[in-house]
Design a protein around this nucleic acid. Structure first.
Length: 265
DNA sequence: GACGATGTTGGCAC
DNA sequence: GGTGCCAACATCGT
């Protein structure tokens, strides 16, 4: 579930770890590691201090004292937890000089990576949706010839951090059909979409993200933005604007929810 | 029990 | 640079 607002919420909830030292690290599942085996990974970060924690799109970047980064992506079901006890799906255990940080991920789509330099995976991401100007956003749309807008919003090289939920919600708010051709969204419609993306992300961060199944932040708190979803997973239910049943279609292999009346093609 | 869907990315073929 | 399809995996609902 973790899209930008959820990852931002997690980043804020682990901010108290800044200044703490990693005494030891245990990695139980090689699958979630990138570029190194569990022992090398542990050896690389043990004894290091957590200097800073930043979010880039859906990535968390933990800067370590003396240089280097711990790169964390939560995938579909990843969780970072402050304290608690390791369970069946706990793949990483970081013991700090004060407290414990656990990484849980049942589906193992997330990953942990150590990178000496600023990681390439993060460097190649597009701009932050909350920072891009309306003009730059509109220019980005116009450069795409035939891409459908929903697919483009999910493309992390176009914008970093948008996922399936917030793409659907932003398109609904802007009154744009998910299959609309990106380069044909201009002027006011482009501005409305830019505005809708900013609004939906800011509101979701404010709400602590969306807890669709069991997403929680590092303190175990649920978000409640799912209560404010207007189209996502509301297939067949009445549109909150006009009462027309919400439809679900597949775009770029991802389910997309929209109101056929408010979001004309 | 089978089947399909689920918030993600990445690799492949075209 | 696009798209479509499949892959990774566990869990839950029909």
């Amino acid at each position: 579930m973790p899209e930008l607002p959820e990852v931002e919420t997690v980043a804020r909830s682990i901010a108290p770890l800044i200044g703490r030292k990693i005494l030891s690290a245990e990695f139980r599942c090689p699958r979630v590691l990138r570029g190194s085996d569990p022992d090398t990974m542990a050896a690389g970060i043990e004894g290091r201090k957590i200097a800073a924690i930043c979010r880039y799109g859906k990535f968390l970047l933990v800067s370590l004292g003396g240089g280097g980064y711990l790169v964390i992506h939560l995938g579909m079901t990843g969780r970072l937890l402050l304290g608690g006890s390791p369970g069946k799906h706990t793949h990483a255990i970081l013991t700090l000089d004060r407290g414990l940080l656990l990484y849980d991920d049942p589906r193992q789509f997330g990953c942990f990576q150590y990178s000496a330099e600023f990681p390439e995976r993060v460097a190649r991401l597009g701009p932050e949706p909350l920072e891009i100007s309306a003009e730059e956003f509109a220019a980005g749309l116009s450069r795409r010839r035939s891409t459908r807008i929903k697919a483009l919003l999910l493309n992390q090289r176009f914008l970093r951090g948008m996922g399936n939920i917030y793409a659907d919600e932003a398109l609904f708010r802007a009154g744009i059909h998910p299959l609309a051709i990106a380069s044909r969204i201009r002027g006011d419609r482009a501005r409305r979409l830019h505005q809708a993306i900013g609004a939906v992300l800011r509101e979701a961060i404010e709400a602590g993200g969306s807890s669709i199944s069991d997403y929680v932040d590092a303190e175990g708190r649920k978000g409640f933005f799912q209560l404010s979803h207007r189209v996502y997973q509301r297939t067949g239910q009445p549109c909150l604007n006009c009462g027309t049943p919400i439809r679900r279609i597949l775009v770029a292999q991802r389910s997309s929810h929209f109101c056929p009346k408010c979001q004309k093609r």
